[in-house]
Amino acid sequence: MFSTVDARAARYLKLYLVTETDLIPVAVPSTLRKRANQLRAAPSETKLRDFATRLLELKWYNQRLHREAIKQQLLETDSNHVDPLLLTNSSSSPQNVPSQLQAPDFRAISPQDDNARHFQPLETQGVRVELWRYQFVSRHASLHGRKHLEIEIARTKSTP
């Protein structure tokens, strides 16, 4: 109902990939957008766990490295043609890049996706999902965010 600040728009997710050394922030993948919206619309521990489990199933790759590979290929061959096969052999390790710069460059790819085999996925130990909500204080015109729910799931040996 059009009557309160505390609606879906005021609840937001912060997602992190847990690696050996770092927490890498990532955006909600398009395949999980609907579930993210459901979680924001009616938050619950069950929905949060389900969301985190699904997030854990995804593979992640570094888009920026792929873009750099394309750029490199164009420079080396001096042509307008890009061979997609060359992009599958990117040897750079995404973990070497500081996470704050990597953040918007990581993209999820579903294991079922045919393109998944072309990319070298990031090695993750687990995922962390935080659901935040903000309040608006009219007197100071300020927004105050606070963590509402959180979960961290570690990858087990049986997890693909």
């Binding site: 937001y12 912060k14 710069l101 953040a103 015109a141 300020s142 927004l143 606070r146």
Partner: peptide, 23 residues
């Protein structure tokens, strides 16, 4: 923009929990 950054700033290393809007 501030509202957007409060929600998604963490992706760009701009993480904060409170902000004051112009009014």
């Amino acid at each position: 923009e501030l509202w957007e950054l409060l929600r998604e700033g963490y992706l760009y290393g701009i993480e904060f929990q409170n902000t004051t809007l112009e009014t």
